[in-house]
Amino acid sequence: MLLTINNLQASIDGMDILKGINLNVNAGEVHAIMGPNGSGKSTLASVLAGREEYEVTGGEVLFNGKDLLELAPEERAREGLFLAFQYPVEIPGVSTTNFLKTAVNQVREHRGLEPLDAVSFLRLMKEKMQLVEMSQALLNRSLNEGFSGGEKKRNEIFQMAMLEPQLAILDETDSGLDIDALRIVASGVNKLKGKDNAVIVVTHYQRLLDYIVPDFVHVLYKGRIVKSGTKELAMELEEKGYDWIKAEVEAGA
């Protein structure tokens, strides 16, 4: 088992957001987490990545058998957890190339590998750039500064390609993308998918799932996974919206 989440509870500023999440992810799987606004989707992604504003109030998360919640955010990343941000951050004066060189080499160091020299690093970049149609010019510019929404998201997937994570969490990667950008991003993710890694796609809409086809779909509502199924569940949600799920939950409660 790559990722095991048991009864995970988390709050922010004293407000409970996650109220007992259970989820198992195996290598080679794609999971979609869907749900209405405010259901806790992005909180789940943030808690897994280790964002400090959230307080974990209960439960456990095992990643490759390790207690994930004990690890600092950078250690989680080095262990192979990647978060594609919903709102990628800008860092003025630091080129994507320079930023990634630091990141890749710190991750390599953790894995007991020699740092890449400039030539090998550039070769690796060239290879991965093609996956998401990134241009060299874009990578030489300050990280995400002045990038369009589509360029920022492509840059996230490009970074994912460079870091080769075991588990990638895509947090609303489809938001703000036009159809062409969506296609490029999705095709990048698909090319990176393999039997040794897994992807969790967090999304509000079914649209992205036309391109990144999930093995499992989970619906998050009020901090709990209230329904799980296969890709057909996503279709149903697209058709009927979330109200019927809400009704089901309220009726059951």
Binding site: A77, I91, L100, L163
Partner: peptide
């Protein structure tokens, strides 16, 4: 920004190196 530091952390960069990157970027000119 804490956001900037977290972003770096999430890519495997520890906080000291993240600060160094951000500050050097700021002072680059």
């Amino acid at each position: 920004g804490e956001d900037q530091i977290f972003y770096c952390n999430q890519r495997g960069i520890d906080t000291e190196d993240a600060v160094a990157l951000i500050v050097n970027g700021y002072a680059k000119e």
